[in-house]
Design a protein around this nucleic acid. Structure first.
Length: 418
RNA sequence: CGGAGUGUAGCGAAGCGGUUUAACGCGCCUGCUUUGGGAGCAGGAGAUCGGGAGUUCGAAUCUCCCCACUCCGACCA
């Protein structure tokens, strides 16, 4: 991608109203832009990050047998009445009228659509288990949005739903997804800050589990057990019940965190209102047992930014970076330098490396370095008169202080080696 | 939804005890120069001062209503 053609630009000054670090950095770097309170546009650079995150999640979902589908945003009112959430979630729902009458809901979650759908295909124990997931926008009528892209009214969510014949099968699958979630957050580069957190379990389980990422921008308070590397959400801590649910340790550390994912045993909460029965081997009818598993993608992206940054800008983990290499062409009016940069650009792309080539003719070196640090692509490669004279390129990792002069072979080794 | 605050050019931001060419910075356009940490000089374009109503000879500035955004709180399977 030529930076001179990029849709977005970086900016030094952004609205003072944007106080959260994640939104400040993402806005300055040109990855997101706010269009209304709690509503953000994702610009090409930001969308590339989202796609990287999405692909990591998709790969892991496939590994646990998930089948991707796509359910509508608009949900029939009657489905929401059936679960009573038309009433009980009233404050969170965007209700859509046709004419003067409420007819539809902008989905805040998808059980109300998926369960009646599953009913059409699940009728025997032979049809179970089933695992389906999707990436879909969710709408929540938040009374107050906050923390940049961490709490918004519309956001992209991966939601996986599992259907099982019995509780034991759900329990086994639940544990599997728990491990998968840890792997996802590890692949996204926030493993060290993300804690498996015990939270309120609803009617069908003692606990649900959240994945809480430590950041001052978070709204949740969790208590961490250093021995077990797990945490417990403040919301389920009774007055003095400060002990680790795993080892009983009572010396827990209180920290602020943001919930980047959760897994939840639904039991028959939704199969019941929709009569999702299946026939057992003996012909008896039984309700299917369900689990649900969510990850908010913008929130995950924002959490990464909250953690991975310095005074100059964002520091993307290579797994989710919008590009792997930021090629800075200094001396852009020098034909030989341009040719040299062009050559490297093509070679890297042939090797499957994603490159943002700063070919802007009207920017001096300082401006290019500053933008490069702000956007936070893992490798900065400089092509200039200086590097050309030595027959080399300069490469520098985003977190390294100084670059090094390397030949093409060595450069490829560094960049592809990762 | 309660409390507090803020809306002036694409962005940031002065002016806000009424007088009229609404400053300045970033960005943008033109020209020349410059070229390894956000370049310099010269010229230029761009503003229904959030919207509406009112007070006044005269309103960005005062009053009222509305809207938007932000922060604190409550809420958040």
């Amino acid at each position: 991608m030529l930076q001179s053609k990029l849709f977005s630009k970086t900016s030094k000054d952004i609205s003072k109203d944007e106080v959260s670090l994640n939104a400040q950095l993402l806005t300055k770097a040109g990855l997101v832009d706010k269009s209304a309170a709690g509503v953000y546009n994702l610009l090409p650079l930001g969308w590339r990050v989202m796609k990287k995150i999405e692909n990591i999640i998709r790969e892991e979902m496939e590994l646990v047998g998930g089948q991707e589908l796509f359910l509508p945003t608009l949900h029939p009112k009657k489905n929401w009445e059936k679960t009573d959430r038309w009433q009980s979630m009233e404050e969170d729902l965007y209700k859509i009228k046709i004419g003067n009458v409420d007819k539809l809901v902008l989905g805040p979650t998808h059980e109300e659509v998926l369960v009646p759908l599953a009913k059409k295909f699940i009728s025997s124990y032979k049809d179970l288990p089933q695992y389906v997931y999707q990436f879909q926008n969710k709408f929540r009528r938040e009374k107050r949005v906050k923390s940049g892209i961490l709490r918004t009214r519309e956001f992209l969510m991966k939601d996986l739903y599992s259907f099982h014949a019995d509780q034991e099968d759900l329990d086994n699958y639940y544990e599997k997804v728990k491990k998968t979630y840890q792997k996802i957050f590890q692949r996204c580069g926030i493993k060290d800050q993300t804690y498996l957190t015990y939270a309120s379990g609803g009617t069908f389980a003692k606990y649900s589990h959240e994945f809480q990422t430590l950041t001052l921008a978070g709204e949740d308070l969790i208590y961490i057990c250093d021995k077990c590397k797990v945490a417990i959400n403040k919301e389920i801590i009774a007055d003095q019940d400060y002990k680790c649910p795993v080892c009983g340790n009572t010396k827990l550390k209180k920290k602020k965190a943001v919930e980047v994912g959760n897994i939840f045993k639904l039991g028959v909460k939704f199969s019941k209102p929709f009569d999702l029965f299946y026939s057992k081997e003996d012909g008896q009818k039984e309700l299917a047992v369900m689990g649900c598993y969510g990850i908010g993608l913008q929130r995950l992206m924002g959490s990464i930014v909250e953690i991975k940054n310095d005074e100059r800008g964002i520091i993307w983990p290579i797994s989710v970076a919008p590009f792997q290499v930021h090629l800075l062409e200094l001396d852009p009016r020098d034909a030989q330098v341009k040719e040299n940069a062009q050559k490297l650009y093509q070679i890297l792309q042939q090797k499957g490396i994603e490159v943002l080539w700063d070919d802007r003719a009207d920017k001096l070196a300082g401006a290019k370095f500053a933008d490069c640090d702000l956007i936070g692509i893992p490798y900065r490669v400089v092509a200039s008169k200086k590097t050309l004279k030595e027959g080399k390129y300069e490469i520098k990792g985003r977190e390294e202080k100084d670059g090094q002069m390397v030949g093409l072979e060595e450069l490829l080794k560094i960049v592809i080696g990762k």
